[in-house]
Design a binder for these strands. Sequence first.
DNA 1: CCGTGCATGTAATTCGTTACATGATTCC
DNA 2: GGAATCATGTAACGAATTACATGCACGG
Lengths: 183, 183
Amino acid sequence: MKKPEFGLLGYALLGLLHDNPSSGYALRKVVALTPMSSFSDSPGAIYPALRRLRKAGLIRGRLEKSSGLRRRQVFHLTPAGIRELKQWLALPPSRDEVMRRMDELSLRFAFMDQVMGKNASVQFLRAMERELEAYVPSLHEYLAAAKSQMPLSARLALESGVRGYETQLRWTREALAAYEKHK
Amino acid sequence: MKKPEFGLLGYALLGLLHDNPSSGYALRKVVALTPMSSFSDSPGAIYPALRRLRKAGLIRGRLEKSSGLRRRQVFHLTPAGIRELKQWLALPPSRDEVMRRMDELSLRFAFMDQVMGKNASVQFLRAMERELEAYVPSLHEYLAAAKSQMPLSARLALESGVRGYETQLRWTREALAAYEKHK
DNA sequence: CCGTGCATGTAATTCGTTACATGATTCC
DNA sequence: GGAATCATGTAACGAATTACATGCACGG
């Protein structure tokens, strides 16, 4: 009996619903109109994802007839949904995530303060700092070893990736400083 | 009659095969051991992708019995494969790609010098610079308008994204400078 | 009465993932 | 003889994409 998994989109929706119970249509607009646009706002993505969450008992919908329009359903988290969201947010950033799924880490962190509190945010940032501090030097090593045999554009593309991780590390440290000052 | 599409992985494989005809196993190792690890190196990803490319006539395999091991197949691009690769590489970076698919742009650029020549690389970078110059200010606007209502971690997560695009823009300019000097 | 915006959904297809299966060779 | 490495593949499943379908209400 394996634990069911909900995609990144599923968790994104849980996070959005935690603070603002919303209809599917409203969620689509949030995804489309904010810098969450790495997700698809197509109905074929959002509505099936909501149905999966509902079937798993993580969200419940209230039908609203009031506003003269077509019936719409406002979803909110159930206690099980809150538990699932917190469990996901509590995962510390792993090496693998830092290397290949920074987008998921950003998403987790974005919800962190509201759902888990500032202490959890600081823990999260510290773990991310550790992983990045280990990963960035290994990228530099690879680059130093490989650069001489690469065409210019390939080398530059690789350097662009390394820059990204360095920027992320700098950001992590500044974010930690922001929490320090905030206390 | 719609033009068939090959996934990002398909084009990655075409790009790798352009300079180094390789077996599926060798391609898996390249994906696993270099910073191309955003792709999956699982056989369930690589082999079906190769079969699709072969069926479309973009690659051909030569069976090698020589080395005592199990029979292995070394793939190389056909003329149609080279055409398809070039057509993909010739696409100028669009606004949408800059916003949500920077990974694909990096991949295109990595193969650019070898397959299309340095002039194409410069054209590509100039277009990317234009798109980023238009996009970054709009992100700043959004951030300025929204930041006051956001919890700290959400604001910081958003700022991390903006930093990423700024870094990318700086990199683009430096890359252009590198090509200037190279001439 | 027609287009636009609000609002929800399904169908076909494609692709990736995990897990499994197979087979040959070399090293210990 | 058994583990590790080379090498290729399939099957079941899950999830996203595009495209289509539906229905209500309001403004011009």
